[in-house]
Amino acid sequence: MLITRGLQPGMPPEEWNQTQPAKVKAVHAEYLKAGADVIATNTFGGTPARVKSFGLGEPAAQLNNKAIRLAVDAVDEFINARIRADEPEDPTASPMIALSLGPTGKMLPPVGGATEDDISREFEAQLAGIELSADLILIETFFDIRESLIALKEAKSVFPGPVAVTMTFNKNPRGFFTVMGNEACEMMKTLEDAGADMVGANCTLTSGDILTLASLLRASTDLPIICQPNAGQPSIRNDMPVYDQTPLEYADDMIRVLDVGVNAVGGCCGTTPEFIYEVFCRRRDRGIRSINTKEHS
């Protein structure tokens, strides 16, 4: 979404919270208009290690607060417009804001040399002084359960609201595993035991594969489950990355995902507002929330 608005290859999406706030807010507005009940902040790569590696001049927490403020403003403007239009359904019903947290990029042994303390400090600094105006924290796209648990612990220590954790799984001949070998259903239980309020899967998989995974996840935990797959596989058209699923195919699968008992669906890489709108239309009568994230994709 930000690339189509001119974000250059190699530039961090989080920088736009500072340099192009209107464009970030416009993306939020598009998802709200498409019917999203939850929007995710542009903070996925907002840990100090990443912010610093990009040479951004601002402390991580400030950049993250700007991102939250943009989401809050977008929601306020959306509600005000609805009130002015006097829409028949409750015009004051407020969409929610999820503070998105992604992996630090630092690896624990044996793959990397980071310690658990290094990683704790990253999330601690990202969350230090953060405004608590988000409705939930969404820890997403994690692939090492140890890092997920650290992020969850840090989030819980500062944030009184619900914390969701979704990990990213690959499908292999033996089932669904993260690249580190963490098995999907076991991870749901581990996260539940550690105090997560919602669990689930996002990124990597297509909507079809997430449908297979969804019923396995449902059987593994009593917690609410979130599923946010990609819109298929990426390729390039006119110098822009595009994904190969259509909004209709995607929405069809996501309805089935809800039917197996998943509580919230949304989209990761490649799911433009058209995808969320299709899902919204199908789900309108059932009153189940949809989530969209990854506005930088």
């Binding site: 690339i3 290859p9 990426p234 930088h296």
Partner: peptide, 9 residues
Amino acid sequence: TTTMMGQKT
């Protein structure tokens, strides 16, 4: 997906 364009560049 934000950096893969770099491969093309």
